[in-house]
Simulated scan of single mutants.
Amino acid sequence: MMTSIVGSMKGFWKDEEGLGTLEMILIIAVLIAVVLLFKEKIQEVVEALIDTAGEKSQKVFE
């Protein structure tokens, strides 16, 4: 009786089914947190890149 309980507890502890899903959820949560923390800086960088691309494309067509 006791060995079957211990055996099932060990099996439950070693069961890794669903672990990949948990890891993906944690990674997504961390990415969202980073984006929210650095939202303003990310916007500045993207706007600077777009402005630079616009200036370079204008030079090509002149």
Score class of each variant (00 low, 15 high):
M1C: 09
M1Q: 08
M1S: 14
M2G: 13
M2V: 15
M2Y: 11
M2E: 15
T3K: 10
T3W: 06
T3S: 12
T3V: 10
S4I: 11
S4R: 13
S4Q: 13
I5M: 10
I5K: 08
I5D: 09
I5V: 11
V6Y: 06
G7I: 05
G7N: 11
S8W: 03
S8I: 03
M9K: 09
K10D: 02
K10S: 05
K10L: 12
K10E: 04
K10N: 06
G11Y: 02
G11W: 01
G11P: 01
F12K: 11
W13M: 14
W13G: 05
W13I: 12
K14H: 03
K14R: 07
K14C: 00
K14T: 04
K14E: 07
D15Q: 06
D15T: 04
E16F: 05
E16G: 15
E16K: 14
E16Q: 15
G18S: 05
G18T: 07
L19R: 11
L19I: 10
L19A: 14
G20S: 12
G20V: 05
T21M: 09
L22F: 07
L22I: 10
L22K: 13
E23W: 05
E23Y: 09
M24Q: 13
M24D: 13
M24C: 04
I25C: 01
I25Q: 10
I25V: 09
L26N: 13
L26P: 01
L26S: 10
I27P: 02
I28E: 12
I28R: 12
A29L: 09
A29N: 02
V30H: 04
V30Q: 09
V30M: 10
V30I: 15
L31A: 12
L31D: 06
I32T: 10
I32S: 06
I32K: 08
I32H: 03
A33N: 04
V34E: 03
V34K: 01
V34D: 06
V35C: 07
V35P: 00
L36F: 11
L36T: 05
F38L: 06
F38A: 03
F38T: 02
K39Q: 06
E40Q: 02
E40V: 01
E40L: 00
E40T: 01
E40A: 01
K41S: 07
K41A: 07
K41F: 01
Q43A: 07
Q43R: 04
Q43V: 02
Q43W: 00
E44M: 00
E44R: 00
E44Q: 02
V45C: 03
V45P: 00
V45N: 05
V45G: 03
V45M: 09
V46T: 05
V46Q: 01
E47F: 00
E47P: 00
A48L: 10
L49A: 14
L49V: 12
L49G: 15
I50E: 08
D51C: 01
D51Y: 02
D51F: 03
D51M: 02
D51G: 03
T52E: 08
T52Y: 05
T52G: 04
A53E: 08
A53R: 06
G54V: 05
G54R: 05
G54N: 13
E55K: 15
E55V: 12
E55D: 14
K56N: 12
K56Q: 08
S57W: 09
Q58L: 12
Q58N: 11
Q58M: 11
K59H: 14
K59S: 15
K59E: 15
V60I: 15
V60F: 15
V60S: 09
F61I: 14
F61A: 15
F61P: 01
E62F: 09
E62A: 14
